[in-house]
Amino acid sequence: MWKWILTHVAPSFSHLSRFLLLFFVVCYVAVTCDEVGTRDSPHSAEAATNSSSGRHVRSYNHLQGDVRCRRLFSFTKYFLRIDANGKVSGTKKDDCPYSILEITSVDVGVVAVRAINSNYYLAMDKRGKIYGSKEFDTNCKLKERIEENGYNTYASLTWKNNERQMFVALNGKGNPRRGPRTRRKNTSAHFLPMLVYEGISSCFM
Rank of each mutant, 00 (worst) to 15 (best):
W2H: 03
K3F: 05
I5K: 04
L6K: 13
L6M: 14
T7L: 14
H8M: 07
A10T: 04
A10P: 01
S12M: 04
S12P: 00
F13M: 13
H15S: 14
L16M: 06
L16Y: 09
S17M: 03
L22D: 05
F23K: 14
V31N: 05
C33M: 09
E35D: 05
G37I: 01
G37Q: 07
T38N: 01
R39I: 00
D40H: 05
S41Y: 00
H43K: 09
S44W: 02
S44H: 12
E46F: 04
A47L: 15
A48M: 08
N50I: 04
S51I: 03
S53Y: 07
S59Q: 07
S59P: 02
Y60I: 07
H62L: 07
H62T: 11
D66K: 12
V67F: 06
V67W: 08
R68H: 14
C69W: 03
C69M: 12
R70K: 12
R70A: 06
L72W: 11
L72Q: 06
L72F: 14
L80C: 07
L80Q: 10
I82L: 14
N85I: 01
G86I: 02
K87A: 11
V88C: 12
V88I: 13
G90K: 00
G90T: 00
T91M: 02
K92S: 13
K92I: 04
K93E: 13
D94Q: 08
D95E: 12
S105F: 01
V106E: 03
D107P: 03
G109Q: 07
G109L: 05
A112T: 13
R114G: 01
R114M: 08
A115I: 03
N117H: 15
S118W: 04
S118P: 00
N119Q: 11
L122G: 11
A123T: 05
D125Y: 06
D125M: 08
K126A: 14
R127T: 02
G128R: 09
K129P: 00
I130S: 06
Y131W: 14
F136I: 15
F136V: 10
D137G: 15
T138Q: 10
T138D: 11
N139E: 13
C140A: 15
C140M: 10
R145G: 01
I146P: 03
E148G: 06
N149G: 08
N149C: 09
Y151W: 05
Y151C: 12
T153Y: 01
Y154S: 08
A155N: 06
S156K: 06
S156A: 10
L157Y: 14
T158D: 13
W159E: 07
W159S: 07
K160N: 09
N161L: 01
N161H: 15
N162V: 04
E163Y: 06
E163G: 04
R164E: 13
Q165R: 12
N171G: 10
N171D: 15
K173T: 08
K173A: 06
K173L: 05
P176W: 02
R177A: 01
P180D: 11
R184G: 11
R184S: 15
S188F: 01
A189W: 00
P193K: 06
P193N: 13
P193R: 07
P193D: 13
M194N: 09
Y197A: 12
Y197I: 08
I200F: 10
S201L: 12
C203L: 05
M205Q: 14
